[in-house]
Amino acid sequence: MEAPDMLRYKRIPLADGAGAIPAVGFGTLIPDASVTKQAVKAALAVGFRHLDCAERYRNEEAVGDAMREAFAAGTVRREDVFVTTKLWNTNHRPERVQPAFQASCQRLQVDYVDCYLIHTPFAFLPGDEQDPRDDRGQVIYDSEVKLIETWRALEQLVDSGQCRSIGLSDVTLEKLKEIVAVARIKPAVVQVEAHPYLPEWELLDFCREHGIVLLAFAALGHGMEPNLLDDPVITGIADRVNKTPAQVALAWAAQRGTAFLTTSVRPSRIEENFDISPLPDDAMQQIRDHIGTNIRFNSVVETGVPGFIPRAGSGQGSR
């Protein structure tokens, strides 16, 4: 078991010497820009050194403002912050990749990003409308581009030095295998939904085999039903180790070798999510052996359209 205070500062080396990604990450999917800025500043002040952003979130400027102010105040240095952002579905054509990337850099006010992800493997009709729909309300996909063509354009960003590592998001194991088989620069990071109710062990094993970091979003189940944080296995361990159920689920994520993301606008919750400590080995085994629920909360992996699946008694969000 790791030293009590070290799990929250854990960094996972990336393939090809592209640095290391902090296991504990802060997601920036927050609708209000002013709230985004304050939440990011709070996260950096608490100790988060990994910010996960996206063109799709429409708030990269607010994240950039928060980072600029933190850097100016001496709270943190740019080289200590791992910045991830993502290419949206409407920019999959190779000629659109670099302009989209540069626009993200400008909004984030950075000269480089540490990791650039393809947000989903689904290409949408290119253009300024992020959610192109036909007259029947159906998504208009782009059949003129293949995922490997988009990947080649990301490889060129690494070649240019503007981007230190690249990866994929919202992909199945099968789709990941397709890219790994033909990529010149292998994915460094794969971001997918993962939590004790969707542990993705097979995907994680493949990632380990190929030196890829699995980055978990919805690491706490996004507050959906059934509520992961009410699971008796999780709550029982929380009582035993004197931590909250959220801290148990997040420690499990980091301790099994993945990185994870959480999002909150409440300073107390932001601090709680960073304040994780290692779990006893038997607790790790208990989570693996005694949680039988298996459920996916976000349908984006099936269509490329963000959205948590509505169920009775749950809210709905997007990613």
Rank of each mutant, 00 (worst) to 15 (best):
P4I: 08
D5N: 14
K10M: 13
R11E: 09
I12L: 14
L14A: 09
G17D: 02
I21V: 13
I21R: 01
K37H: 06
K41T: 14
A42H: 11
A45R: 14
A45C: 07
G47C: 14
R49T: 14
H50L: 15
A54N: 09
D65N: 14
D65E: 15
A66K: 12
M67C: 10
E69V: 08
G74P: 11
D80I: 12
F82G: 10
V83E: 05
V83D: 01
V83Y: 01
T85L: 01
K86G: 11
L87N: 08
T90G: 09
P94F: 03
R96L: 15
Q98S: 07
Q98G: 00
L108W: 10
D111V: 00
Y112V: 06
D114H: 12
F122L: 00
L125W: 01
L125G: 00
G127P: 09
D131C: 00
D131N: 15
P132Y: 04
R133G: 00
D135F: 12
Q138T: 04
Q138H: 10
V139Y: 07
I140N: 12
Y141S: 10
K146M: 05
E149S: 08
E149H: 13
A153H: 00
A153I: 01
L157G: 04
V158Y: 03
V158A: 10
V171I: 13
L173S: 05
K175Y: 05
V180Y: 10
V190N: 02
L198S: 02
E200R: 15
W201P: 01
D205M: 03
C207T: 03
L215P: 00
A218I: 00
A219Y: 04
G221W: 03
E225P: 00
D230M: 06
T235I: 04
N242Y: 14
T244K: 06
Q247Y: 08
A254I: 08
Q255F: 06
R256T: 11
F260W: 06
L261M: 00
L261G: 00
T263Y: 05
R266G: 01
E271H: 07
N273M: 02
S277L: 08
P280W: 02
D281C: 12
D282A: 06
A283K: 09
N298F: 07
G304P: 12
G304Y: 11
S314T: 01
S314A: 15
G317H: 10
S318H: 13
